[in-house]
Design a protein around this nucleic acid. Structure first.
Length: 471
RNA sequence: GCUCCCUUCGUCUAGCGGUCCAGGACGCUGCCCUCUCAAGGCAGAAACACGAGUUCGAUUCUCGUAGGGAGCGCCA
């Protein structure tokens, strides 16, 4: 039997890291078995579902490289099917109409809570014979009253829940629209899903769903409930606390390879291995080895992985993503050094592509004022002869390459009998406006000859003006 | 309140009765390298929640306790 997994988000918000990890697990488990990965959009909540959220989910999946084999299916397009199955359960006596008002149900719940009982429907309409007029009924599933429901969770191990903990859940509202626990079962059965991987907040729904499967006479899938992800501080992720769209990570300059690698290692491991290519993940991943406890999201480790991938992925691949960030920042990549060369120099120095853009802007556009502290410290009168010597030496340099540039600068330092620091730092400020940049030869190389000479001249004028003002 | 679930360094984890005075990674600290900032190299601090069992022997098995989480909707 081929493995069929599915990721079934509801489009009531963006795709956050918890959902992304669940999707990744579903994807990997299917790929590992040569199976099928299905995407299903659970949009039965018309109130809260939005087209924007659907798009955000699709874009997120796409950015992460989680390609699905079937779908996306939309539950709103399957209402006829749900109605058909509801009809069948009604006909077979496996479901019944319930005329209880919301008010009565609320009172019942309160009363049970007050008595220290677990609130659940008391079954008033379960064996009702009459049909009250003027009330549109809901449809309830006739849950077994005795016995237990057990399953062997692929992550949690054996779980057993007694049927007397359960009640007759509503599967269709008065207007006929179906509810979650019912649509999930109908869809997973229809789509022949063999392994349901989802967040562990669904553990409590599982026994209800198993009962519905049995009422339907459908084959039971396996279940795997993965723990949720906590925020940096160990607190639960929520909309207002740490839960951000995976697309935010894209915008912040993370590579999808880094995020998926980070996510796969959250709650799962394979010996001491930290870095996994997609192929390695597929080969090594097994949902059964996923941990049971919730894991806290550590952005420092994500940063480390991101830098690792910026350095180790083929430069062309990194450049593809970097170009996107250049465009987003409004910088023309053609107005400076080639992106692959830039990555070769900058990847060691930044954690994200966005930082790389910020740190590299100076190679593509003119900068404004010098950093005050850096200028004060390095663009002093003593630097005047250094600037002049550099200008002369670099103007006619045969090859504008890091190696020859390094030689030229060392030549200037030797000639003036000063240390490298006395030459490199003023030059660095002259070229970038700041006291920190790649090694000085690389900085010159990336800046380019014309732009470098212009900036050396500008620094010289700055030093002279300052000397004049000070004198 | 009731039901279910979870518990190894700050964080992610290895461990599946002796190999563990607990290993790796991120982060942190120190040193080295050095034209700045990084990167890199080396070294270091840092954990089995607690209590009973079972056993010759428990991080590993069982049961409690404590702490944490989830669910209990005509939301998904």
């Amino acid at each position: 039997m081929t493995v069929r997994t599915r990721f079934a988000p509801s489009p009531t918000g963006f795709l956050h890291v918890g959902g992304a990890r669940t999707a990744l697990f579903c994807y990997l488990q299917a790929r590992a078995a040569g199976g099928i990965f299905i995407l299903r959009i659970e949009d039965t909540d018309l109130e809260r579902s939005t087209p924007e959220s659907v798009q955000a989910i699709l874009d997120g999946m796409d950015w992460l490289g989680l390609d699905y084999d079937e779908g996306p299916f939309y539950q709103t397009q399957r209402f006829d099917r749900y109605a058909e199955v509801t009809r069948r359960l009604l006909d077979e006596g496996k479901a019944y109409h319930c005329y209880c008002s919301k008010e009565r149900l609320e009172d019942l719940r309160e009363e049970q809570m007050a008595q220290g009982l677990k609130p659940r429907y008391d079954g008033l309409c379960r064996d009702r014979e009459d049909t009250p007029k003027g009330v549109k009924p809901v449809v309830r599933f006739r849950n077994p009253r005795d016995g237990v429901v057990s399953w062997d969770d692929r992550v949690r191990g054996p779980i057993t829940i007694s049927n007397d903990e359960l009640d007759d859940l509503i599967i269709a509202r008065p207007d006929g629209s179906p509810t979650y626990n019912f649509t999930v079962v109908v869809d997973d059965a229809d789509m022949a899903v063999s392994l349901v991987i989802r967040g562990d907040d669904h553990i409590n729904n599982t026994p209800r769903q198993i009962n519905i499967y049995e009422a339907l006479g459908a084959a039971l899938p396996e279940f795997a409930h993965v723990p949720m992800i906590l925020g940096d501080d160990g607190a639960r992720l929520s909309k207002r606390h740490g839960a951000v769209s995976v697309l935010q990570y894209r915008d912040d300059g993370y590579l999808p390879q880094a995020l998926t690698n980070y996510l796969v290692r959250l709650g799962w491991s394979h010996g001491d291995q930290e870095v996994f290519s997609r192929e390695e993940m597929v080969a090594a991943f097994d949902i059964a080895n996923v941990n049971r406890k919730a894991a806290a999201f550590d952005s420092d480790k994500l940063d480390w992985l991101n830098q690792h991938y910026m350095r180790s992925l083929p430069a062309a691949e990194v450049a593809r993503h970097l170009r996107w960030h250049f465009e987003k920042a409004g910088i023309d990549p053609e107005s400076g050094p080639g992106l692959e060369a830039l990555i070769g120099v900058q990847a060691d120095r930044v954690k994200t592509l966005r930082e790389m853009v910020d740190a590299s802007r100076v190679f593509y556009e003119d900068f404004g004022d010098y950093d005050a502290g850096a200028a004060k410290k390095h663009l002093r009168p003593v630097a005047e002869p250094v600037m002049r010597a550099l200008g002369n030496s670099l103007e006619d340099l045969a090859r504008w390459e890091p190696e020859s540039l390094d030689q030229a600068i060392r030549g200037v330092a030797g000639e003036l009998e000063v240390g490298m620091g006395k030459v490199a730092q003023p030059l660095r400020v002259a070229l970038t406006g700041t006291a920190a940049s790649p090694s000085i030869d690389k900085t010159l190389w990336l800046t380019g000859r014309e732009r470098s000479l212009r900036r050396i001249e500008r620094a010289l004028q700055f030093i002279l003006a300052r000397a004049a003002a000070g004198a």
